[in-house]
Design a protein around this nucleic acid. Structure first.
Lengths: 160, 160
DNA sequence: ATATGTGATGTTATACTATTACAAGGCTTT
DNA sequence: AAAGCCTTGTAATAGTATAACATCACATAT
């Protein structure tokens, strides 16, 4: 039973509700508030396996009756990122829901340039970087590891 | 004698002129034109071990008598990136000169959050990512690997 | 020597991404 | 009721990037 770290199909409704409940629980445990805007923002991210820009998100939030100004979206997104429920994709100036909330991880992403799907790898592939950093005396605090390319479905000769 | 892949001091004037001549040669070999704006842009990047934003660069170019509108900077930067003489640092929306022009490489960067220095690692630390991608059936075209943290000089207790 | 094509540069305008600063509301604690 | 804290809403602005069009320089072909 694969989690969706890869590009395999899965029960999307279930994965959304699981993630949402995990977030509820984590917030309760930490004393953080998963307010309506924040919860809805997470839900929107979870509905898409592609990364969403802050303004795309904002448009959807506005439709749902929330504020329509940029800070509304950025605040919710920053909250989710801080809590580890979402990640920022630097290469796209966009955001995705975290594929394994609750675990402390240094994520790596595979981003399809055709369909925009973003898959989160389930362990830190930047291992080699740690060795380099250690030998240079550099103290790593955060890593960004992103690969752009073609997902299985978008490669020439891919099954429809 | 280390190249400046790490944070060690080095003969900066020499490293600039070497890089500039390497770029001249590479352009000649490829039929690309290292025009005055482009050459000056590379020179400016080489003078700094920190990443420069497009608008910082633009201001310096304007001082030197080149055009002062954004496309002037972005075009020169894109040229340098295309030719492999510079890299874009996604995490900073900024650019650095390439530490090893002419070699075909998937760069990885260590970015000091205090002094802004950017060091380019001299081999691909994203190796683990390739395995992940292979098993997911994802075809990598390009990678972004960036670590943020503290360089040796900026760590608590670093020598002045 | 003219005409044509190509690539580089310059400029205008605009789009996209993100933050600062301030006003207002809800909740808890005192 | 007052004070403090957090969250939301809004206005204004800052920072990053590109599209579209005009022009110029140079090379080549006529």
């Amino acid at each position: 039973m694969p989690h969706h770290a890869d590009f395999a199909p899965h029960d999307h409704a279930a994965c959304i509700s699981t993630a949402l409940h995990a977030a509820d629980a984590a917030c309760a445990a930490r004393g953080a508030q998963l307010t309506p805007v924040r919860r809805r923002t997470l839900e929107i991210l979870l509905e898409s396996h592609a990364a969403l820009g802050a303004y795309d998100l904002l448009a959807r939030l506005a439709t749902d009756g929330f504020g329509a100004k940029p800070p509304v979206a950025y605040r919710a997104l920053n909250f989710l990122v801080d809590q580890g429920f979402a990640h920022r994709i630097e290469g796209l100036n966009a955001f995705v829901a975290c594929a394994r909330p609750g675990t402390d991880h240094a994520p790596a992403f595979m981003i399809c340039r055709t369909c925009g799907t973003v898959a989160e790898a389930d362990s830190d592939p930047g291992v080699g970087l740690r060795d380099k950093a250690a030998s240079a005396g550099f103290q790593i605090e955060q890593t960004v590891v992103e690969a752009q390319g073609l997902c299985p479905d978008c490669q020439p000769g891919a099954a429809a």
